[in-house]
């Protein structure tokens, strides 16, 4: 997509986004609430109309989305919604019937870890189980491209890890995945590439490691005279060498010495704070 713009009323919320997601890639759109993640994803899914720019998804303009296009994408919306009176297996089978070449519904339920709940009514599911059902409905059509808008928000850590495993499995099948999240850890562990969105602008983009490398990458902490010293550097070898040489020469110990690679979270906080 190129120079994507969107306004609600006279308020422009996307100010010209450029983004390209490669086939087979897991791409994370990271940003705080209100940054424009959902707006962007729903434009790509064909739900919302853009006010400017060019968008091409699987060779189609999503505003012209037809059944063929929709058969090739899977969608997890930010908030889940399915018929509460159906059972889990009924709704998955119903959705499977909408697609020309669906996966086996039972297999999909195993994949998302809902096989024990297959006869439960949807309205009896917990929030996390509903989210997994959403994921099942997104996967059952066997799509090439999967959109996930905050797929693990509200999950406990174990459920999140399981969802990550499911998504990794999808990647191994060659699926392209575009997910939004405000969990750095999620982007860092899952994504091949990340774009950080702030106030409708992309402020950083690249593989998580490259984003880290671009920004101050390593943090060195120790205590001197009872005071904590923190040094941020992208030349940790030289800095450490100088520090330890100095300490050796003075015959003192660098107390509580710690060398830490900075996480994507730090980078994220840094770029989303700048000028905000």
């Amino acid at each position: 997509m190129h120079d994507l713009r969107k306004s609600y009323g006279d308020r422009e919320v996307l100010h010209g986004l450029d983004l390209a997601v490669e086939t087979g890639e897991v791409f994370a759109l990271l940003g705080p609430n209100g940054a424009g993640k959902t707006t962007t994803v729903e434009i790509l899914e064909g739900y919302r109309r853009r006010d400017g720019g060019d968008v091409c998804v699987l060779g189609t303009d999503p505003e012209q989305a037809d059944a063929d296009f929709r058969a090739r994408i899977g969608i997890v919306l930010q908030s889940s919604a399915v018929y509460p009176t159906l059972t889990v297996e009924e709704i998955v089978a119903l959705f499977a019937g909408y697609y020309p070449a669906p996966r086996d519904p039972d297999e999909v339920l195993v994949l998302v870890g809902l096989e024990d709940k297959c006869r439960a009514r949807v309205r009896t599911l917990s929030g996390g189980q509903l989210r997994r059902l959403d994921l099942a409905l997104a996967l059952v059509g066997d799509p090439e491209l999967i959109f996930l808008d905050e797929p693990t928000t509200g999950f406990d850590p174990a459920a999140r890890r399981q969802a990550w495993n499911t998504l990794r499995g999808m990647r191994e099948l060659g699926k392209t995945i575009l997910l939004t999240t405000h969990y750095m850890e999620e982007a860092e562990t899952l994504a091949d590439r990340v774009a950080i969105l702030r106030n409708g602008r992309i402020v950083a983009t690249g593989p998580p490691r490259a984003l880290l490398a671009e920004h101050v990458a390593v943090e060195i902490r120790f205590r001197r005279d009872g005071e904590e010293v923190v040094i941020d550097t992208d030349e940790p070898t030289r800095v450490l060498h100088e520090l330890t040489a100095e300490a050796l020469a003075a015959g003192v110990e660098l107390e509580a010495l710690e060398v830490q690679r900075r996480s994507l979270e730090d980078v994220y906080l840094e770029v989303t704070r700048e000028g905000a």
């Binding site: 899914e45 064909g46 739900y47 059944a67 063929d68 929709r70 058969a71 994408i73 969608i75 919306l77 908030s79 889940s80 919604a81 399915v82 018929y83 959705f95 909408y98 697609y99 020309p100 409905l137 059509g141």
Partner: peptide, 14 residues
């Protein structure tokens, strides 16, 4: 209002 129609519209079912 519960979002079911929106979700259905995201499938290939016309």
């Amino acid at each position: 209002e519960s979002g079911v129609l929106k979700r259905v519209r995201g499938t290939p079912l016309p």
